[in-house]
Amino acid sequence: MGTRGNPTFLATLWAALILAWIFSGEQFLDLMFAMPDAGAVDDWLLGIVVRAEDMRAAWGAPDLFASWRGLLHRTFGLG
């Protein structure tokens, strides 16, 4: 049994995660503020996230996640 393909699988997952962050509005920022206090590294972590969020906002990336969500909910009557 081989293990080929796992690094590709991992790289694709991380690329997808970055794309999800870029095109999902402030979901990740909300998540970071909702997480439990990470102690000594909390300010450092939040600083990185806020800087990344500023960068994302500067690119003007659309919130595709919200649009996709709205479409799904309207189509299937999920309310």
Binding site: G5, T8, F9, T12, L13, A16
Partner: peptide
């Protein structure tokens, strides 16, 4: 499916 497509399917499905 190739590994990248498996991961893409997992990611797209999870987001949806």
């Amino acid at each position: 499916l190739p590994a990248w497509a498996q991961a893409a399917l997992l990611a797209a499905g999870t987001v949806t």
